[in-house]
């Protein structure tokens, strides 16, 4: 089987969950194909975890339906349990148990025994490089290693679908990159991954992304497709990256300039959405007026963040590009 043979592994239709009067998830529909990495983004409390819990079959939807590899999560909960791995937002390890014991426990929980269990365990220990920590208690591991262990535990039964709820929250950049390397490796082997995150750079790495805001899914698709949406690229505009000294001073000046629709700081540079009619020289003159003599200006495409900002404001009924 090729990594992506078009099989839909995760799908839901009008998935809705209410807690009393509060609607945590409002009519979310999406499809994730085999072998893809679906990045699920949204602010805290927007309903990301609630969607995952419903897809995993541990929270009943108020209405709508969801299927994992064709099995209904409500009517066939036992069928999906062997198919999914789940890494919850909290570190779901037993602190008193060592790394080896945690692996042993989760393996047995999924009915693995004897040689099969040993083989799977050794494979994952190698993959996650947990070998030196086998006899250390889980409670004494640092964030990155805990996360690796949690991942190893959720993969012992070789699930074709893996849900990860904010796997990189609170771990260092090196561990974060290594974790993503692992995810790509799994995806290459045909595993379907459903990952929630706060980080835009992580979203850029996903093959598909969805953005949930105020309980509603506002965007869903392939990052490049989303970036070329008309709502993200208003007619007769272009995006510029301007690198200069004193970006904050420059930002204040350019925001007042006629023809600049939006301006945001990105580290040492600014990202601008400007009318096509605005000349580069006009920008340089304005910068010189506030004392910035030197500036590198070049055109750029929209980032996923631009996509989410544009589509969220559309969704809220506000004008997508103010000015």
């Amino acid at each position: 089987m090729s990594p992506d043979d078009g099989t839909v592994m995760i799908e839901c239709e009008n998935l809705t969950r209410r807690f009393g009067h509060f609607t945590a998830v409002d009519s979310v529909s999406l499809q994730v194909r085999k072998g893809s990495i679906f990045g699920f983004l949204g602010p805290n409390g927007s309903g990301k975890s609630t969607v995952i819990r419903m897809l995993c079959g541990i929270l009943a939807p108020t209405s709508g339906s969801a299927r994992i590899a064709g099995f209904d999560v409500v009517r066939q909960p036992n069928a999906i349990k062997g198919l999914i791995g789940y890494m919850s937002q909290k570190f779901s390890l037993y602190d008193e148990l060592t790394v080896a014991e945690n692996l042993q426990f989760y393996g047995r929980l999924y009915g693995l025994r004897g040689k099969t269990l040993d083989a799977r365990r050794n494979e994952l220990i190698e993959l996650t490089r947990l070998q030196p920590y086998l006899n250390r208690r889980a409670g004494l591991l640092s964030g990155g290693w805990r996360q690796r262990l949690a991942m190893a535990c959720s993969l012992l039964h070789q699930p074709p679908v893996l849900f990860l709820d904010e796997p990189t929250a609170g771990i260092d950049p090196v561990a974060r990159r290594e974790l993503w390397d692992l995810l790509f490796e799994f995806s290459g082997r045909g595993m379907t991954l459903f990952v929630t995150t706060h980080y835009m750079d992580e979203a850029e790495r996903c093959s598909h992304v969805g953005y949930i805001h105020m309980s509603k899914l506002v965007v869903c698709g392939v990052p490049d497709d989303l970036k070329s949406l008309p709502a993200v690229n208003p007619p007769n505009t272009r995006r510029l990256d301007i690198t200069c000294d004193n970006v904050t001073v420059g930002l204040q000046a350019l925001r007042r300039l006629e023809g600049v629709r939006t301006a945001t700081v990105f580290g040492q540079s600014m990202h601008l959405l400007v009318d096509d009619g605005l000349q580069e020289q006009t920008i340089r003159n304005e910068l010189a007026r506030v004392g910035i003599a030197q500036a590198d200006i070049y055109p750029i495409g929209p980032s996923l963040e631009d996509v989410f900002v544009a589509l969220t404001s559309l969704n809220n009924g506000a004008t997508p590009v103010p000015k």
């Binding site: 819990r53 995993c56 079959g57 541990i58 036992n78 349990k81 062997g82 999914i84 789940y86 919850s88 909290k90 779901s92 989760y106 929980l109 999924y110 009915g111 535990c153 959720s154």
Partner: peptide, 8 residues
């Protein structure tokens, strides 16, 4: 939660 997603 982790126990609940398992087939236990």
């Amino acid at each position: 939660e982790q126990l609940l997603v398992s087939p236990m």
